[in-house]
Design a protein around this nucleic acid. Sequence first.
RNA 1: GGGCGCAUAGCUCAGUUGGUUAGAGCGUCUCUCUUACACAGAGAAGGUCAGGGGUUCGAGUCCCUUUGCGCCCACCA
Length: 895
Amino acid sequence: MTKPELPKAYDFRSTEPRVYEMWERGGYFRPSNDPNKEGFDPKARPFVISIPPPNVTGELHLGHAARVSTEDLMIRYHRMRGIPTLWVPGTDHAGIATQLMVERDLLKTEEVTREELGREEFVKRTWEWKKKYGSIITKQIRRLGASPDWDRERFTLDEGLSHAVREAFVRLYEKGLIYRGPRLINWSPGLKTAVSDLEVEYSEEEATLYYFKYMLKGSDEFIPVSTIRPETILGDTAVAVHPEDERYKHLVGRTAIVPMLGREIPVIADDYVSREFGTGALKITPGHDPNDYDIAQRHHLPIISVLDEAARINENGGAYKGQDRFECREKLWADMKNAGLVIKTQPYTTTIPRSQRGGEIVEPMISTQWFVTIEPLAKAALAAVKDGRVKIIPERFEKVYFNWLENIRDWCISRQLWWGHRIPMWYCPDGHMTTGRLDPKACGTCGSTQLTQDPDVLDTWFSSGLWPFSTLGWPEETRDLAYFYPTSVMETAYDILFFWVARMIMFGLEFTGEVPFHTVYLGGLIRDEHGRKMSKTYGNVIDPLVVMDELGTDALRFTLLVGSSPGNDTNLSVKRVEANRNFANKMWNAGRFVISAVNSLPPEARADSEYTLADSWIWARLQQLVRDVERLFQSYQYGEAGRQIHEFFWSEFADWYVEIAKQQMQSESTRGQTVATLARVLDISLRLLHPFTPFVTEELWGHLRQALKESSLSALAADWPEALIIAAWPEQKEPEGWEDAKVADFSLVQEIVRSVRNLRAEKNVPPTRKLAASMLAGSKTTLLEEQSNTIAALAGLDASKLRVDAKAGKPSEESIVLVVGSVEVYLPLAGMVDVQAERARFSKELADTEAQIRRLEQLLSGDFASKAPAPVVEKERERLAALKETAQKLNAQLR
RNA sequence: GGGCGCAUAGCUCAGUUGGUUAGAGCGUCUCUCUUACACAGAGAAGGUCAGGGGUUCGAGUCCCUUUGCGCCCACCA
């Protein structure tokens, strides 16, 4: 029977889509225990992740790829462990981002602004946009090999989630935790909306500090004052000095004159003012500065707003009305200069608040907005982490979380946008407010039917905050909610700890009475190979789609998952992805070798012989690996786990065991057992690797399974399911007694092989030249006799001329001698022996060995022997004994 | 002004209950197209684990400190 040959190089391009389709068709992404289906077992605890929903109109970037890879790894691992697993996918409507994108497109294609289009039409167009482009991101997530339950995909603006948002708002409002009122908020003049504190970013910038005179009424006296924003002078309602300041103390209570406007304002005393800074006097602009606002509250000062929604001067700015804030800054300053009010200007570095989205300078402004009273929510969220109901990994972020929640301020949730959840509040002509779970028909206070809904929408994060439970059906008491909530792990990047994670915990506790997840796993950011942030202006952006096209998804995933640790940023270079593409190819070829070994097995072959040394060794190593991987997974150290599997597969299985297997397969007596071992080790390796590199492992495993089923070793695959994605995770087995001895014996074989190879390289002996050799092996004689074929094959020796003796003299001919532990290897290399060089080599080795002996003897004679644990001491004693033996052999050679 | 992280081979990074000879990938040098793989194999060079101090029989790992980078939070005009 001829079997189709597998291609020499792993063809990820054809494999990935085919395998993904197979998974989806097989329904493997759906939870194995579904509360909506027959046979549901409510006692089987599920493992649940809600995906951090990407922007519905977004394009996949490496951040997504890192998140999705990590989550998929967790999901696949738990699924393989037989745990009912649910990963809820979905997208976020991303208010500002999406609205801006559609606005930009409308302007470009139709030369129309959203205002010209009108609200209703604009929202309609945005929905059309969403329908057209909204599936791009989810398709890209599929390309990453993600295995969420697509049947449960949600969108933050879909009907169910809108229902949840409405419920949440109404509940908070009824509880008195949502209020509306004029407050000083951060205003984005470019976007013409309020933004929350979190959406403001501060950057160190060069600015100018303007010094000027605040003239006092009815005199030539003045108070010198400085400001960074002269245009806010127009809104000043006081000049403040420190109450103890001798320079100005006597002026408190006098009246100052606002430059150019002539408005009269008081001079007040407040100890907020720092005597040391600037002139020691402070202008108070409560309408455009948070500190001044607080001072104004204390002193009952009027609040004057001088800017309109586009940050132009409004009617309170007198002659400057209509000017842009920066234009006014110049003009006003020029006018003040002419009026003799200017003292000086000086360059000044300060932190400038900018809009996270638009980048323009944000203005503090008085504006009527909706707020969430955050303190009670924050307290509960704080407690949940403090008492361990929610665990944050890495732990250090708990401190950051505490610090933020302890100093949190009310959350401004209204946005002057059109794309989002409209605030469910209606006003009658008399200004009464009415809300409800259903749209009200009449005013709840006066019965008026002339209701208009609040034009604002809610902050996008308001709906994202409900994500872990709204996606499961909340506020309805669905079966999904009952079974899958609270979720297990929230996996996301640390940069949205406040934006999202903290708010989910607050909302989860408030609305469901439970934490939304037990564990928060915070990953790092992806940077370029030198640790720089990726940005289009630098031109250092790596597009994950391009990387997947060129090197394969598994290579990208393995790179993102291995070589970094939780909470730390990852520097990604294409070089590393290439190396991992090579690893996928390594798996492919090692797998191909095993599969062809299975395929060419004669029908009568049985795996009934004793394990050889190499068989035992690879098993011992594999069992050790399984245990280590399990331990590492339990502590979220996926990167280290991946590294160890990589090392095992490549450096031990492929480099050593496969090579030895080639020898063992030549003897009919060991052939069956060797092929069986190859197949079983490959099987377990593929299972361990599957969460990291799902495609190549699934593909190979399918071929392996097929081959085994058709071979005389079909029993090995008897209980394998139809796909690796649902195959059982390898179990840890307790170490068996023989392992250590076998591993040590095998190490000796490796050492001998390495020494010979080393010598061959040094002496430039061509690989084709098989050398004769004899080994003086002492107590290792039996072992080495058994291993002589293996050693010969791996070291390039002539097996028929390889002698192993317990004790014998040197061979008569001229030889090179290698001392490997207690074994001497003689290689007759007539004509190539340089007596001087050989002696030098021995001398050096002897010196090294003796140095180690001295060090160990010193160690063992000190407190170490009595204070260190017995096994550690024993190990060193054994090493010392071995070293002494080696030294003795070397000495003999030098005589 | 607070808080946190990082500093290990030329480059990018692993190294989590402290165990004595510190690893990987890439890069460099030598050899080899050996019937799984040249996206490979074999071999080699390369590190006072930022500096200092301490705890310990033993420190890359724990504690203190200095220096240099990075990040987060914060209302000084």
